[in-house]
Every structure is written in C-alpha cells, then in structure tokens.
C-alpha cells in the first residue's frame, strides 16, 4: 500500500490521526492531496452537512457546541470544521473557535478542526469542502461547518452545506441591513440567538418582514427560530427543523440541489486547473514580464494586456 492509500484507509476506518493528517494534506495542497480526495470520494455522501454563518459575535460557536451535544444525546457522531480569517498582511491566523467547544474535545464521537481561511473569499477556506469530505468518509453522521464571521457576501457556504443556518443576535447594530444583501437569500433556517435579550422579538419580526417580500413559491419556507445558546434553549427545536429540511432534501429537492453542487464543484475544479496551467505557460513568455512593466507605466491597461497574452496562448492551444 502506498502512503496515500494508507492514509485513505485510516480515514475510512475513522482513525483520528489519519483524519487529522488528511485534512492537513488537503489544506497544504500537498502533491498527494488530489489522489487522497479521489480515493475517499466514493465513500462520501452519507453525512448531513450543515453550515452556520452570520455576523461575528452572534454566538455561532457557542450555539454549535450546544447542537453537537444534542446530536450526541441522540446517538449521532459529529465532525466540525470551524473557519477563522487569515490575516491578509501576515498570512497568520488566530483560530479561537475551539474556546467555546473544548468540553467536546475528549468525546470520541466528535472531531473538531480549526481552519484558517488562507485568504479564500466567501467565508470558508479552499480546503473546507474537501475537509468535509474527509469527515463524511470517516463516518460522521453530521458535519458542521462554521464560516468566518460573515457580513454580506460570504455565501460560499451554500456550495458546501446542504442545510444553511444563518445566525443573528439582537443588538448587533445594523444587522438587518447586512442580511438583506446576500446571506438572506442563502438561509434555509434563520436563528435569532441571545433571544433572552429584550429586543429579540423585534429582530425576529424584522427578518420575517423581509422574508415576506420574497413571494416566490418554494417547497421550503425558511423558519425563524429563537435560541439562547448559553442555556441551550431552543436547540432541540432547531435540530428538529434541520431534520425536517434534510428529509425534504431527501424526498426530491436533493437531486436538483446535488446536481447544482456537483456542477459548481466541477466548474471550480476546471477553473483552478485552467488558470494554473495557462498561467504557467504565460509566465514562461518574456511578454508576460514586459506587459507587467507596461501596466506599471500605464502604457496598457490590465484587461487589454490579458487579452493580448491570451490571444496568443489560445491560438497555440488550437494549433
């Protein structure tokens, strides 16, 4: 057996060290990453993948801790991937989501991994999707992804998760403005956390008011739930809704949803391959460096320079 096969085998048998190593291999985009993902891929698709997104400070980590406990009480095993931002200036990251989940760390039915976004846009990391596959292949019943504290356009999570929970809390400022923009549309379930605060009902009503503006006929109407993550209040009800959503997906929506996801993943993979192979070729040409200089000197704009380079490259490819 090669090393990659051994690692994949370890993942499939649920061995913790192998799961951890496999995620590192994927994160670092090590040479064996591709082979690893393709060998575990046939064993994925069994877990239910839940995404948690929403503004920083809404209580995502604390809520996830309570949800994991509830799933454990129901006899389910759980994997968590918690994403925090990488500093665009230093490349480093402070990963603190575990602080709220540490009591779960010694439960053998739970695997938690902190992940830095490594400047991937959209609230997750490039490796998140494949890390989820590792946990899925390792036999976790539920895989939870926590995005970075999201604002308006962190919608990548829909490409990863089957059920997206958008978490809010009263008093976070202009939160309703923020959710109107992007993450409003991706929510399968809304949660107003810290619901023991006095203006919680107003936040619930604000969200419902926006939802009513959406008059498309859909099989699933996103419910708005209240939770208090600190005490666990509302958590069983949230899990019930997640389960309802999962059943609906299973009944029919799933096919459509998973085709869309598969297509998006395929396009993503093609983009990555095309960009890196084309770029590699272009960089070898002296013209590339020359055009960079011309852009700096304002002699040509970047779009025209790209066109000039690509015209030649595409012609070469045709020939």
């Amino acid at each position: 057996m090669t090393k990659v096969e051994e690692l994949a085998q370890g993942v499939l048998s649920g061995e913790i060290r192998s799961i951890a190593r496999a995620i590192t291999v994927i994160e670092n985009n090590a040479p064996e990453a591709k082979k690893l993902v393709s060998s575990i891929y046939p064993h994925t698709g069994k877990a239910h993948i839940i995404g948690f997104t929403g503004a920083g400070g809404a209580g995502k980590s604390t809520l996830i801790e309570k949800i994991v406990r509830e799933y454990r009480r129901n006899g389910k095993t759980v994997g968590v991937v918690a994403v925090d931002p990488t500093s665009p200036f230093t490349g480093g990251a402070f990963l603190g989501d575990r602080i709220r989940m540490q009591e779960l760390s010694t439960d053998p039915g739970v695997f938690i991994r902190s992940m830095a976004s490594r400047n991937y846009p959209g609230g997750i990391a490039r490796a998140t999707k494949d890390a989820v596959k590792v946990l899925d292949a390792a036999g976790k019943d539920i895989v939870i992804v926590e995005t970075v504290g999201a604002g308006q356009s962190e919608v990548e999570i829909i490409k990863v998760a089957q059920t997206v929970v958008v978490v809010h809390a009263p008093g976070l400022g202009d939160e309703i403005q923020a959710i109107k923009a992007g993450i409003m549309e991706i929510a399968d379930i809304f949660v107003v956390n810290k619901a023991d605060r006095e203006n919680a009902n107003k936040t619930v009503m604000d969200i419902q008011a926006i939802l009513q503006l959406n008059n498309k006929e859909t099989a699933w109407k996103p419910p708005v739930l209240k939770t208090v993550a600190l005490t666990g209040e509302g958590v069983p009800q949230l899990i019930e809704k997640i389960e309802e959503h999962r059943l609906l997906l299973e009944k029919g929506l799933k096919h459509k949803g998973s085709r869309e996801k598969a297509e998006a993943e395929l396009i993503e993979a093609i983009k990555e391959k095309v960009v890196s192979s084309v770029l590699e070729g272009l960089r070898k040409e002296g013209e590339f460096e020359q055009l960079v200089g011309e852009i700096v000197e304002r002699e040509i704009d970047p779009a025209s320079a790209a066109e000039k380079l690509l015209k030649k490259a595409l012609k070469d490819a045709e020939a």
Binding site: A93, R98, I99, Q102
Partner: peptide, 23 residues
C-alpha cells in the same frame, strides 16, 4: 503561523486530544 488557542483551564486530556485533531 496558524495559532490555535483553546482558552483557560484545560485538562491534559483536552490538550493532547486537541493537538491530535488539529495536527
């Protein structure tokens, strides 16, 4: 570097298990 911080009052078991899962 990517720094994982787990907060105060950790047991040896929590620390070792975290190191394992976080690789």
């Amino acid at each position: 570097m990517e720094v994982i911080y787990t907060g105060l009052r950790q047991t040896p078991e929590q620390i070792a298990e975290t190191a394992l899962q976080e690789d």
